[in-house]
Simulated assay, not measured.
Amino acid sequence: MVLEAWRRIEQKEIAPIYLVYGTEAFLINQTKNLILNQMLTEEEKDFNFAVYDLEETPIEVAVEDAETFPFLGERKVIFLHSPTFLTAEKAKEKVDHNLKRFEAYLQQPAPYTVMVISAPYEKLDERKKITKELKRKAEVIEAKKLNEFELKKWIKDQAISRGLEIDDRAIEQLLTLVGTNMFMIVSELDKITLYAADEKRIDVNLVEKLVAKSLEQNIFTLIEKVVQRRLDEALRIYYDLLKQNEEPIKILALLAGQFRLIYQVKELSRRGYGQQQIAGFLKTHPFRVKLALGQAAKFTDEELMKLMALLADADYQMKTGGMNKSLLIEMLLFGMKK
């Protein structure tokens, strides 16, 4: 697990080669920064740190650098980005890589170099010899999206690292308002920290006071108001979004996406799928599935089918008709009211 790998790195248990792969960009960046800061001082980074884009540079150039002794220091760090040769992608390579040279380096890596291969892909091609060899010789860190339990624990750890406690309700509300984007979560925690420095505690009231709602969360709340037959409050949220210069077509797309998710999770849940299974099937975060399941329970199948038809008609009218787009969504919201 990536969090366990971070602890080893913090304890300076550093491997000579790392393979960091997955689609969670935050975890990839954090891993690279952690290794770099553990290995080199700010002064050493100027001389003993290099980055290679393997879509532009042959792998043997990076290997030659890795085998070269550090300058004015004892260690060096090399980052290798975009190793498409580890995937099954058929994209045309801009450069030819001498993979045999790389394989030879894997057998006997330079003891003074830490090489980090960053592969931002969901899957690697396990059939390829180079992929198998790299996985055997490197410390492999899978930067996959954290599940709900891991994400909540990570948020708690982030608060502790800032000298703060955060209660469970505050974590839940933070995820509800911000979503599961780790970059955004860190940004909001940094903001909250400035206000919570004296109390040393983050509670749900502080989160609600300081964390701005994302557009997606505003859409989620708008749907909640429709469900509760509070059309005036739903319209108020919509008018606020217009004041924030949000485009009606984007609002419509998010409404359609959320209702599509609600319909899908309702159907999959009826078929006996669990939250994690649904998340994997729909390729979305389990926390989003959890929220959608809560909303799905408030709609009958007939109501959802009617709403999907209204959304499809509104999309058609917005793209082909001459009606005012803002007014079109107003009419849609009136039509959604039970």
Rank of each mutant, 00 (worst) to 15 (best):
R75I: 01
A159T: 00
L241Q: 14
G73I: 00
E24P: 10
K290A: 00
L282D: 03
E330R: 01
I329C: 14
G335V: 03
K129G: 02
L177W: 09
M182W: 09
E142N: 15
A297W: 00
Q38I: 12
G272V: 13
Y112L: 04
K128F: 06
Y112A: 07
K290L: 05
E302K: 09
K225G: 08
Q217C: 12
Y316S: 11
M305E: 12
L241M: 15
I9C: 11
K319V: 10
N29P: 04
E60C: 02
E188H: 12
L328D: 00
S214M: 14
M323G: 08
E74D: 11
I202Y: 10
R8P: 06
I278G: 12
Y195P: 01
D96Y: 06
R75V: 01
V211N: 10
I329H: 00
Q107M: 14
E64T: 14
T176R: 11
A312S: 12
L19V: 09
I223K: 07
K152G: 15
E55Y: 05
E133V: 13
E89W: 12
M1Y: 15
V289R: 02
A296H: 06
T23Y: 00
R101D: 06
A297N: 02
N48M: 01
S269R: 11
R288N: 11
K209H: 04
L206Q: 07
E267F: 11
Q11H: 04
R162A: 02
G335A: 07
T23G: 11
T221C: 09
L80C: 13
K144M: 12
A314L: 05
I14H: 14
S118K: 03
F259R: 06
P58C: 05
E216P: 05
V95Q: 07
Y105A: 08
Y121K: 11
L72T: 02
F69H: 15
L177E: 07
L151T: 02
M336L: 12
E267R: 09
M182S: 10
V61T: 15
L222A: 08
E67P: 08
M308F: 00
L304M: 01
W154S: 13
L27E: 12
L86W: 06
P16A: 07
K135G: 08
Q244P: 12
L146G: 11
E330A: 09
